[in-house]
Write a protein that binds this DNA or RNA. Structure first.
Length: 286
DNA sequence: ACTGGCTCCTGAGGGC
DNA sequence: TGCCCTCAGGAGCCAG
């Protein structure tokens, strides 16, 4: 399940291998992703100018447009020698000059691929930001402007649970279930508290912890880049110690209390009833 | 304007 | 060993 650190790690792995190369051929082996894949006939022949990221969308910038790729929850990208046989669920194959073959693998097909036409020069960048998939996205969690005051302002009068609030991509992007759960634990905030009732101080701790946990995961992901081309390495971010996610019923690593498991907006949610209070009250010692 | 529920899909894991 | 069941989840969409 690619969270933002894995998407960023993917970008950093793929970009240096493919940037500057020309797309020689494109094969859509299965167009049935989240939305049917429809790509222009003139995409082959274009050069890849660079790869960037917005939220969990990877943006492959070509001469005359941008390929917008989302990995869903089971998607992955790898760059392999062009002669390597396809795997089951390799839905998209993009062969570049130099024998580099980019493969989109996505068993559950929750991912998506869109083409946005428009030269990157001129107003292309602004037009891309207005793409319907990207237009309503909130702030990047690693942006300096993402802080407690931002969250406090956005949470005004909101009644939904703070965990659901920080998982809303219109507020802040890239905070999936794992990192929302962990950051709330580290900030000492109970996930079920209405967002509008969280104090500024607690939001400041939460913004800090979200940044910390995502930043650390990206740095760890970087350590697996060496293996990126050839094989499935353990994604580095997964080596992080998980305090609550997936640990319902087990003892809290800090205080030993039994971790409580609830569902919030259909998402498994685990918290420590002692370490996580309504207003947030301490940062557990790590 | 908000909010929660639904939906897509396959593979993993548990129970027997 | 094998089968069936349940569950997991990102995020757009929609009804209330």
């Amino acid at each position: 399940m690619p969270e933002l650190p894995e998407v960023e790690t993917t970008r950093r792995g793929v970009a240096p291998l493919l940037t500057g190369r020309r797309l020689e051929s494109l094969l859509v082996r299965d167009h049935r992703l989240r939305w049917p894949v429809r790509l222009p006939a003139d995409l082959p022949g274009q050069a890849l100018l660079g790869v960037s990221r917005r939220a969990k969308y990877l943006l492959f910038h070509f001469d005359h447009g941008t390929l917008i790729v989302h990995l869903g929850m089971s998607g992955s990208l790898r760059v392999l020698p062009v002669q390597m046989p396809y795997r089951k669920h390799d839905h998209l194959v993009a062969n570049f000059t130099g024998g580099h073959s980019l493969r989109l693998h996505d068993p559950r097909r929750f991912g998506s691929v869109h083409w946005h036409a428009g030269d990157p020069a001129g107003d292309g960048e602004a037009a891309l930001a207005g793409h319907w998939l990207l237009a309503r996205l909130g702030i990047e969690p690693l942006d300096a402007a993402f802080n407690g005051q931002y969250l406090k302002t956005r949470a005004r009068k909101r009644k939904l649970a703070v965990k659901s609030f920080i998982m809303d991509a219109r507020v802040v992007v890239g905070v999936g279930n794992i990192y929302a759960s962990e950051a709330l634990f580290l900030a000492g905030i109970r996930p079920t508290v209405p967002a509008g009732r969280v104090t500024l101080a607690a939001f400041e701790a939460l913004a800090r912890e979200i940044g910390n946990v995502l930043g650390a995961a990206i740095r760890m992901g970087g350590t697996t880049l060496r293996d990126f081309v050839n094989q499935d390495g353990n994604p580095g971010y997964f080596q992080q110690t998980l305090y609550v996610y997936g640990r319902g019923g087990e003892p809290c690593r800090i205080c030993g209390s039994t971790l409580k498991s609830v569902r919030l907006a259909g998402r498994a949610t685990v918290y420590c009833p002692k370490c996580q209070k309504a207003q947030g009250f301490r940062k557990p010692e790590c």
